[in-house]
Design a protein around this nucleic acid. Structure first.
Lengths: 238, 238
DNA sequence: ACAAAAGTGTTGTTTTTACACCCATGC
DNA sequence: GCATGGGTGTAAAAACAACACTTTTGT
């Protein structure tokens, strides 16, 4: 077998910034590091890339191992590679951000892995450069969410418009006009109205909706402002 | 010195997708690979990451070595890590895309490094997964350019509005209304009118402009559509 | 009947778009 | 003086924001 000679090889890890939403606030899933140094300090969920994996494979594996969840919304964020970011040994880390429905997360795993959902407003100090990763992930989440309908991944299959609005308000730290919000959301054609209502949070009750999967996939890229003829631009040839 | 035991280390490279614009068409700077296998096949400019470098350092180094240019607009795109992407040995590649003023590129380097500016419409087959990298870079360029004023990096310091329009039309493969285009661009306040005109391409002549560096930095994130209160969203706390 | 939240209708404002037309200049 | 692009003016259309008001239902 051939090899490239004279080049140094290095460790590569993946770290996942896992977002959740409990109806009130945005949270991150953190774990306590199990090995020295920094044992028991807060950390993102991570793991080393294995020889036969792609980076996406590795991130999915880590996520499934730690949360029991498959088919999670997962997006490669950025490679962090400062030579001294890990004091043990030089390690490159590919950061991913994930959006999961917090209700699907098995509470038992909190104990098993010393994991914890922690409000994003009140994060503890994190090891290595994980704080930078979180900062970038927050920024990217807003960026993406402003242009694409990704926040649905943080909600259960069935949700109400007011729930969706609370989520958007949490993410963007802004209050939206209720009436305009629901109209705008509905006008996208992404939602399917269900017959039942949620009676928990109001007397009148709010109808449940679910995502129209087909529309979701088709309209994922509908956005743009600076340039006319939006839509398909990103899929067409340059 | 401590080490993580039982983990495989791997090679990490950077590859740069370098965009240029000659007034007519969008081009990529490609090189002929100098080593076996695939010697003399078309390739992106790349190199291995060195022990003391960050990925950004490595990309800048590769770019300066091959083009002689510093302070180029460079953005990390994506990590490509399919286990068999390089037949010689497993190698992770961090892809970067770069925007350079094609006029600043020294023509002599074309010879020195067997580099070539090739129209993006007419690319040859590339080694490894470089074709995928280019595809993603094209998409990302459009995406970013639709929301942020980055295309100026492809132009000389002084440029005319019609030149800028030709560039946008090239990138988005669409025709824009001249009158609306110039008004829209001017309304951003990003451009400073210079006293001279370019008389090359028309009898009346078009005024030269340059970028207002301060405004550029301040307004880089001004965009957004789906969510009210645009601007500062990305820099504020979540 | 009343309070409280969901959701619809209406209206004024701003942003886009389309396009007529004027401007400056080289030939 | 006329052809050629550069650039301004204007009006119609579309998108957006603000907010009055109606609807539903638990107490």
């Amino acid at each position: 077998m051939q090899r490239y000679t004279g080049q140094k090889r290095l460790l590569v890890a993946v770290d996942c910034i896992v977002f959740g939403f409990d109806g009130q606030s945005i949270k991150l899933l953190l774990v306590k590091r199990s090995i020295e140094p920094y044992k028991n300090k807060w950390s993102l969920m991570g793991g080393f890339m294995q020889p036969d994996e792609t980076p996406d494979d590795a991130a999915n594996r880590v996520l499934e191992y730690r949360t029991g969840l498959k088919n999670v919304y997962l997006e490669q964020l950025h490679v962090f590679g400062s030579p001294d970011r890990d004091p043990v040994e030089r390690t490159l880390s590919i950061a991913y951000f994930a959006l999961i429905d917090i209700n699907k997360y098995e509470q038992q795993l909190v104990d098993e892995f010393h994991a914890e959902w922690i409000e994003i407003k009140d994060l503890p100090e994190l090891i290595f450069d994980h704080g930078d990763m979180v900062r970038m992930a927050k920024k990217q989440l807003r960026y993406k969410a402003a242009l694409h309908p990704i926040l649905f991944h943080l909600l259960p299959e069935r949700f109400t418009i007011p729930q969706l609005q609370a989520l958007y308000e949490g993410i963007f730290q802004a209050e939206f006009d209720d009436r305009n919000f629901s109209r705008k959301v509905l006008s996208t054609g992404l939602l399917v109205k269900l017959p039942e209502k949620d009676k928990q949070s109001s007397k009148k009750g709010a109808f449940y909706y679910r995502l129209n999967q087909t529309e979701y996939l088709e309209n994922f890229d509908s956005f743009l402002n600076f340039v006319p003829n939006p839509d398909k631009l990103l899929t067409e040839n340059l």
